[in-house]
Design a protein around this nucleic acid. Structure first.
Length: 655
RNA sequence: GCCGAUGUAGCUCAGUGGUAGAGCAAUAGUUUUGUAAACUAUAGGUCGUCAGUUCAAUCCUGACCAUCGGCUCCA
C-alpha cells in the first residue's frame, strides 16, 4: 500500500491506496460538486476521475478549479449573482432579496438578482455596486454552505424581515435546506449551490442594467428591481462580449430605420402604428411579390377581407370571450356594434361557408396579407417587433382529415424555401403538443392523436430535427412554431402552423364526403413571417441594413465625377431604369469621395462612377458597397450581371 | 399596465434660474473634383404637454404624454 501526501490549500492529508482527484477534493470540501469543478494536480489540470499518481516522498498539491465549460460558467455567474447581492446588502442594508439565477440562454445577460431596496436603486448606482463587488473579490471571501432544518432557515429569514424568501422556502423545502454565506458579509441565501470556493475566483464581471420585475413573474405580486449583469472566466472574454453587444446595438432596426429612411412611428398618429416610408415600402413590395410568387406555386388562392366585423361575429369565434383584452373597443354604427379584427380567421371561414363544399373541393387554401389590430399594452411596444397594427401573411387551409399530413408537409417545405431565400439557414422547429394535462384542451383524443402524428410525421419525413414540447399546444390544437436564428445568433419566433379543432366546431364547418354524409373539415392556420412588420425588423437587423441586391431600396447609385459627365450619367441612369432597376443619380457638384461616402452609408449595393475616361470608352466603373472598386464593365455586361443577381434573389452581390 | 431612466433644430448631442448653441442634413453661392466627408453664407427651435413656485422657468416641483431598458403578454 502506497501512501500519498496531499496538500490542499493550507491543509494536508494522507491517503492510502488508489484515490481520485475528486475523492481528494471531496474529502476537504464536502460541498464539492462534479458539476462545475475540475482539479489541478501540481499545477496541471487533471480529470476529476483520474487517480493520483502514487509517488512516495512527494507532496502532491491538489486544487479545485472551475472548468472552462458551460457548467463552470453557470457556476461562475451564479456566484457573481451572490456577490452582487452581498455588495448590495453592504451598501443598502435592509434590502430584501428575491431570486438571483445565472442566465445561460439569454445572449443579453449572464445573471440577475431581484431585490427590493429601502430606496429605489438607480442606474447611476451600478458603478458603485460594481466597485464594492470588486473590492470583495480582492479579499478572497469564502463561500460557505450550511445545511439547516426548515424551521431554522425560516427563522433566519423571518428575523431578517424577508417574507418573500420565507414564502419561497416554505414552498420548496421539505426536510433540510441548504444555505450559502459569504464571509464577512451579512448575505445569506437559500441556495443549493454549488459555488466558487471564494470571491477571488470572480475576475471578470459587469453590471449591465436595472429594470423592473414581478415577484414570481406575476403581475399581481410585488414589483421588484432586477439588476442584470454578466460574468466570464476572463477579462478578454468579457471585453469581447461587450464589443459584440455594441455591434448588435448598431444593427438595431429602429436606429437603421431612421438612418436609412425606412419607416417611422409618430406619437401624433399613435403608438405602435407604423408609417412605411418609400424605401421601406419598396422592400415590403419585394417581400410581398416574392411571397405571392411562392403562394401561386403552392396553389394557394388569394382573398381579401375587411378590417372590421360585427361584434356578434367575434362572439361566435370566441374572441369576445377569450381575446377581448387584446381587441380595440367596439364602435357603434346605427344600432350595430363593430370591432377591428385582431385575426383574419373568421373572415376566411366566411368564404369557406359561403357555399356547400364537397370532398372534391378540398383542400381550400386561402391566403391574405391581412392587417389586424391588437390593443397591446403600451409598455410592450417595441419598434417594428411589437406593434398595434400589423399585417399577417396569413393563410387558412380547410382540409379533409386524410389530407392533413400532406398539407403539413407542404407548409414546411414552403417555410424552408422562403426562409432560405432570405439567408436564414438555421431554422428551429418546435412541435407543441397536448401533454398529459388533457382537460384544458378542446377536442377528441383521437383527433389530437391524429393531428400530432401528422405534424410529427411531416417533420420526420423531411428529416427535420425538432423539439417536442409537451403541454404547450394551443387549447384548440397542436402546432409547429418556426423560429429562425439570425446572423448574430439571436432567435426570433416568426411563423407558426396550427391545427384548429375549435373554430370548425364553432362555425359548424362541413363538407359532403364520398359517402354522401356531412363531415367536419380540419382547419389549419399558417403564417411564415408572422407579421410583415416584425419580419421586416428581423431582416433589417439580420442584414444590418445592407440588404441583398433584390431587396435594396436603391440598387444602383450613378455618380458622375464632374458636371461635364452629367448627361452621360443621366443616359446611363435612364437605361438602368428601363432595365427595371432602382437607380439614384447624384448630379450634385460634390467631390466624388463625398458621393461615394453618401451612397455607402446608405448601403447602396453598387455605385457606377463615371468620369471622362468612362465617357470616352463608353463604360461604367463599378464600385461595390463593401468590396470597393470592381473595375470597368460595358453597360450591357453590368446590366446582365445585375439582372441575374436580382432575378435569382442572390444573397451576395458577386458580379 | 407595472418598475426605473430619458425627452433641447430633420438627425446626433452640448448648455444655463435672466426667453438657446455645435456638428451633420437642408437651401443659396463658389468650386469641377477619380473611389468614404471641398469652402462660404442662409434658414431652421413655444427647449415633450399642462399646471405650480419665482420679479423671471428650457432649467426647480407636480401631473400627464411619449420614448428607452426590463417584467407580464405576444405575431
Amino acid at each position: 500500500m502506497s501512501e500519498i501526501n496531499v496538500k490542499y490549500g493550507e491543509n494536508s492529508k494522507q491517503f492510502e491506496g488508489s484515490v481520485s482527484v475528486f475523492d481528494v477534493i471531496k474529502s476537504f470540501d464536502r460541498n464539492a460538486s462534479k458539476k462545475a469543478l475540475a482539479g489541478k494536480v501540481n499545477g496541471e489540470e487533471y480529470d476529476l476521475d483520474r487517480e493520483l499518481p502514487a509517488l512516495t516522498d512527494e507532496v502532491i498539491s491538489v486544487e479545485p478549479i472551475m472548468p472552462d465549460t458551460r457548467d463552470g460558467l453557470e457556476l461562475l455567474r451564479h456566484s457573481t449573482a451572490h456577490l452582487l447581492a452581498a455588495a448590495i446588502l453592504d451598501l443598502y442594508p435592509g434590502t430584501q432579496l428575491g431570486v438571483g439565477p445565472a442566465l445561460m440562454e439569454d445572449p443579453r445577460y449572464g445573471f440577475y438578482y431581484d431585490i427590493i431596496a429601502p430606496a429605489p436603486i438607480s442606474e447611476d448606482d451600478l458603478p458603485k455596486i460594481e466597485k464594492r463587488m470588486s473590492q470583495m473579490t480582492k479579499q478572497n471571501l469564502k463561500y460557505r454552505r450550511d445545511v439547516v432544518s426548515k424551521k431554522e432557515i425560516l427563522d433566519i429569514f423571518k428575523e431578517r424581515s424577508e417574507p418573500l424568501k420565507c414564502e419561497l422556502i416554505d414552498e420548496k423545502v421539505e426536510g433540510d435546506a441548504s444555505i450559502y454565506h459569504i464571509d464577512n458579509s451579512p448575505f445569506i441565501d437559500f441556495c443549493l449551490g454549488p459555488h466558487v470556493p471564494h470571491t477571488g475566483k470572480l475576475k471578470a464581471f459587469k453590471l449591465l442594467a436595472i429594470s423592473g420585475a414581478y415577484w414570481k413573474g406575476d403581475a399581481e405580486r410585488e414589483q421588484m428591481q432586477r439588476i442584470y449583469g454578466t460574468a466570464f472566466f476572463s477579462q478578454d472574454e468579457l471585453d469581447k462580449w461587450v464589443k459584440q453587444r455594441e455591434e448588435a446595438a448598431l444593427r438595431d432596426h429602429r436606429k437603421l430605420g431612421q438612418e436609412l429612411d425606412l419607416f417611422s412611428i409618430h406619437d401624433d398618429y399613435g403608438q405602435g402604428l407604423i408609417l412605411w416610408h418609400p424605401k421601406g415600402g419598396i422592400i415590403r413590395m419585394e417581400m410581398e411579390n416574392f411571397l405571392k410568387e411562392k403562394l401561386k406555386e403552392h396553389d394557394y388562392s388569394f382573398v381579401y377581407t375587411p378590417h372590421i366585423a360585427k361584434r356578434e361575429l367575434w362572439n361566435i369565434s370566441g374572441h369576445e370571450q377569450n381575446y377581448a383584452d387584446s381587441m380595440f373597443a367596439p364602435t357603434m354604427i346605427e344600432d350595430t356594434e363593430f370591432r377591428l379584427k385582431p385575426m383574419n380567421c373568421p373572415f376566411h371561414i366566411g368564404i369557406y361557408k359561403s357555399r356547400p363544399r364537397s370532398y372534391r373541393d378540398l383542400p381550400q387554401r386561402y391566403s391574405e396579407l391581412g392587417t389586424v389590430y391588437r390593443a397591446e399594452l403600451s409598455g410592450t411596444l417595441h419598434g417594428l417587433m411589437r406593434v398595434r397594427g400589423f399585417t399577417v401573411d396569413d393563410a387558412h387551409l380547410f382540409v379533409r382529415p386524410d389530407q392533413v399530413q400532406k398539407e403539413m408537409g407542404d407548409c414546411l417545405d414552403f417555410a424552408i424555401e422562403v426562409f432560405n431565400t432570405y439567408g436564414f439557414e438555421k431554422i428551429n422547429f418546435e412541435l407543441s403538443v397536448r401533454g398529459d394535462n388533457k382537460e384544458k384542451y378542446l377536442g377528441a383524443d383521437e383527433d389530437w392523436e391524429n393531428a400530432e402524428n401528422s405534424l410529427a410525421t411531416a417533420l420526420k419525413n423531411r428529416s427535420i430535427e425538432y423539439e417536442r414540447i409537451e403541454d404547450e399546444a394551443a387549447f384548440y390544437g397542436p402546432k409547429i412554431d418556426i423560429k429562425i436564428e439570425d446572423v448574430i445568433g439571436r432567435t426570433w419566433q416568426l411563423g407558426t402552423i396550427q391545427i384548429d379543432f375549435n373554430l370548425p366546431e364553432r362555425f359548424e364547418l362541413e363538407f359532403k364526403g364520398e359517402d354522401n354524409e356531412l363531415h367536419r373539415p380540419v382547419m389549419v392556420h399558417r403564417a411564415l413571417f408572422g407579421s410583415v412588420e416584425r419580419f421586416f425588423g428581423v431582416l433589417i437587423e439580420h442584414f444590418a441594413g445592407a440588404f441583398p441586391f433584390w431587396l435594396s431600396p436603391v440598387q444602383i447609385a450613378v455618380l458622375p465625377i464632374t458636371d461635364r459627365i452629367n448627361d452621360y450619367a443621366a443616359s446611363i441612369a435612364e437605361e438602368l431604369k428601363q432595365a427595371g432597376f432602382r437607380v439614384e443619380l447624384n448630379e450634385r457638384s460634390d467631390k466624388i469621395g463625398a458621393k461615394i461616402r453618401e451612397a455607402t452609408v446608405q448601403k447602396v449595393p453598387f455605385m457606377l462612377i463615371l468620369g471622362d475616361q468612362e465617357l470616352e470608352e463608353d463604360k461604367v466603373a463599378v464600385r461595390d458597397r463593401t468590396k470597393g472598386d470592381q473595375g470597368t464593365f460595358s453597360l450591357e455586361e453590368f446590366i446582365e450581371k445585375a439582372r441575374s443577381l436580382r432575378d435569382s434573389r442572390a444573397l451576395e452581390n458577386n458580379l
